[in-house]
Amino acid sequence: MDMIRSYIETMFRSWPENEATERVKTQLSELMEDKYQALIEEGASHNEALGQVISEFGNIDELRQELGIETDEDLSADEISHKEREILRKQKKAQRHILMDNFWIVLTVVYFLVSFMTGWWHISWLLFVVAVPLQSYLNYLLKQSEEEL
């Protein structure tokens, strides 16, 4: 009975595709089709029979729990937060790259500003020396916060 098969396919659409699921689907289809046939033989119309068979289907979530099967709907909650975290991580990474690229430009500007303002040309070059490990450390810190996600 095509309609029963379609009903089953729809109800089980989020179940994992494996032998266990196929077994449940086949067995339930057998039961429903037999019931449908019996109702027709007792004089029910196609709609009445189909209606009764479907109304006596039961609770698919209870079935899933009983059989201990995880569906896509369960997994997707995890998947979503995983995806969210991935996106956040990518954003942070992009931000970090932009910051690092601009670091040296900013540093040069700071160097000139400081030098012109203080006139300490003889030591302001040290800024560049200090900046090297500083930039490494900053990169490291930002990377850590990305990993923590």
Partner: peptide
């Protein structure tokens, strides 16, 4: 009235 899923669960 035994639901279809209930019956299947029990048999399983």
């Amino acid at each position: 009235i035994l639901k279809e899923t209930t019956l299947y669960s029990a048999l399983s």
